[in-house]
Design a protein around this nucleic acid. Structure first.
Length: 584
RNA sequence: GGGCCUGUAGCUCAGUGGACUAGAGCACGUGGCUACGGACCACGGUGUCGGGGGUUCGAAUCCUCCCAGGCCCGCCA
């Protein structure tokens, strides 16, 4: 076991038991990283919270804990500070041996989860026959990151793309195509996806204005649901075409997903509603089958219904989501289901989860969790739009990021009189551009809206992807300059002397704790913050501690430290879905 | 009318189960190139933590009431 936090927790916990008895075996020892460097490296706040129930002064409680704390191998003698904080300062010998342990492990000794779970991450979820737009950006990036972290911790992760491939919109589109472009319903690729989008818009307009067309569209839905051959063929063509377009973007982003659209659950909708009826949850209201919700009211204060079957007999997304929960728990064996969607759907999920719970579909050990995120805004603070007011296509957004990254690279190459191959430039532009977009998104607390700015995300200084990538490149620069293959360093002795080496070492050793935190809290910005601070502490070390000119054994020790930094950065960035570069 | 989210330094944002003097980045100013790529580092902050009340030894953090902005609220997803 390598986690610093867990080791310290265990020690404090043992001291609690020795000081106050077995009743305190399960008391959280409240060990956290120290608030300030002057207070040491870690602190336990447990004495303050125990003082009341023990009926003593917090400082006395702290003293009793310290008296029983056997921690000499890890920490300098604990200090009691202020009202009763126990401050711990880690020993160099301990840090050195921990570093040597993680150096030998390709995964930096981050442990696997003790009890791996079957986890479903439901993310991205674009709509068939529409283009992916900026609205899908955050779900795709955040969902992928969470999936990567859970996979890395050894969970059995199922990444599901719950694409919108069903519903009235489809009837609308097919009905419209029958008039406007019948060949698109029988031939593959008769229309580009962009044209489909235009046609979809026209169809929507028609639907809103023309009653006869509305009727046709509804009939198309019914036909499709009944499995009419020509309808199904048309539907499949549309799906196939969209799928290929989506894949281009997923490839560019390096995101892997298994498609299982809404239509997958069609065969289960009827029985889902039936089961709700059998459990006595369904009431009919104005012809629709509803489950009345607890804790949700309408404008006049009456309970709000969740409609599970429309008055025309059709089903809606609530039914699909319920059927999906049932299927994912029963058939997929999911123990944790994570929905990465915008915050606007919070109500919807709270309602669907409630009904699933009341139907008894969610065993105690299963967790349903909505991971909401805020809007992507333009620099004017409003929802991001193109200059002409349209929704921004995701493809355009990514292309623009890459183009700007390339411009910037070329400008610097010219300034420095460097010349690089087209291949190098292309790869750099792509990696930097995509990383910048991903990092800008992931580094903010996902619940708040965020302002999309190419200029800010591509800046070379500050909390941006390029800054982190550069820290990695610096280590590779040392390796190149010194003609040293970092992979062959082996298990050399590390010895920490300069303060910047200590700070860096302690930071490197926190990786495991940070990853576990994100695994629980599902907040990728914590990992970003960690990697940013790691880059900063590395740059301070780099500034103060020459590596190649140092005398042995200091030289090798510093090489080890630099290499561990690079490996930590590479691993951490990979969990964000970001590639590293050897040169920039 | 109800629900959810947001409100912290000029700007963009962190603040982990309450804890000693509230933090980063950007911007701005000064200093550091006999350089492992300066895409860096060091130093510089007078912030009503939206406002009022409450709980506590202690609140940006918990409770409550307001204010402002955003999103959602029966047959779209």
């Amino acid at each position: 076991m390598y986690s610093l936090l867990e080791q310290l927790r265990q020690h404090v916990s043992q001291a609690l038991v020795k000081a106050f008895g077995d009743d305190y075996a399960d008391t959280d020892p409240l060990v956290v990283p120290a608030a300030k460097p002057e207070f040491g490296d870690y602190q336990s706040n447990i004495a303050l919270s125990l003082a009341k129930e023990l009926k003593q002064k917090p400082r006395d409680t702290a003293q009793q804990i310290v008296d029983h704390l056997e921690i000499e191998s890890i920490s300098h003698p604990p200090e009691i500070a202020g009202p009763g904080f126990i401050n711990l300062r880690l020993k160099a010998s301990y840090l050195e041996s921990q570093l040597q342990t993680i150096a030998q492990d390709s995964q930096l000794a981050v442990e696997k989860a003790e009890t791996p779970q079957r986890v479903i991450v439901d993310f991205s979820s674009p709509n068939i026959a529409k283009e992916m737009h900026v609205g899908h950006l955050r779900s795709t990036i955040i969902g992928d990151c969470l999936a990567r972290i859970l996979e890395f911790r050894g969970h059995d992760v199922f990444r599901l793309n719950h694409v919108g491939d069903w519903g009235t919109q489809f009837g609308m589109l097919i009905a419209y195509l029958r008039e406007a472009s019948p060949e698109a319903l029988t031939k593959a690729d008769a229309l580009a996806l962009g044209d489909l989008v235009t046609l979809y818009r026209e169809a929507k307009k028609r639907f809103d204005e023309d009653e006869q067309f509305q009727k046709n569209a509804r009939e198309e839905v019914v036909k499709l649901q009944k499995g009419a051959e020509d309808s199904v063929r048309a539907w499949k063509l549309l799906c196939e075409q969209s799928r290929r377009e989506f894949q281009v973007i997923y490839d560019l982003l390096g995101v892997e997903l298994t498609e299982r659209g809404e239509s997958f659950y069609n065969p289960f909708l009827r029985e889902t509603v039936q089961e709700l009826e059998e459990k006595g949850l369904v009431e009919e209201d104005q012809g629709a089958k509803c489950v009345f919700l607890e804790g949700f009211t309408n404008k006049s204060g009456e309970p709000l219904p969740l409609i599970v079957q429309k008055s025309d007999g059709g089903y809606n997304y609530a039914t699909t989501d319920l059927a999906a929960i049932r299927y994912r728990i029963r058939q997929d064996g999911a123990q944790r289901i994570i929905y990465v969607t915008d915050a606007g759907q919070a109500n919807h999920f709270a309602q669907v989860f409630q009904v699933a719970e009341r139907a008894g579909w969610v065993p105690e050990e299963v967790e349903l969790v909505h991971v909401p995120f805020g809007l992507v805004q333009g620099e004017d603070g409003k929802k991001l739009k193109t200059r002409s007011g349209d929704t921004v296509r995701l493809q355009d957004l990514l292309d623009e990021a890459i183009a700007r990254s390339r411009q910037d690279l070329e400008r610097r190459l010219a300034e420095e009189g460097r010349s690089e191959s087209e291949k190098f430039i292309q790869k750099n532009a792509r990696v930097v551009g995509i990383s910048a977009v991903k990092y800008a998104d992931l580094s903010r607390n996902r619940t708040s809206n965020y302002v999309f700015s190419y200029d800010k995300m591509l800046t070379l200084q500050g909390n941006t992807a390029p800054y982190l990538l550069y820290a990695y490149v610096r280590v590779q620069g040392i390796s190149r300059k010194g003609g040293i293959d970092l992979n062959t360093l082996g298990n050399q002795t590390i010895s920490l002397e300069d303060n910047s080496e200590f700070v860096l070492a302690k930071h490197i050793l926190q990786l495991s704790d940070v990853i576990k935190e994100v695994e629980q809290e599902l907040l990728p910005n914590r990992l970003c913050q960690y990697l940013f601070e790691l880059s900063q502490t590395f740059n301070q070390f780099y500034d103060r501690c020459p590596v190649l000119q140092a005398q042995e054994p200091k030289r090798t020790s510093r090489l080890m430290l630099a290499d561990l930094t690079a490996r930590t950065l590479k691993l951490g960035l990979s969990l964000l879905g970001i590639e590293v570069l050897e040169r920039m």
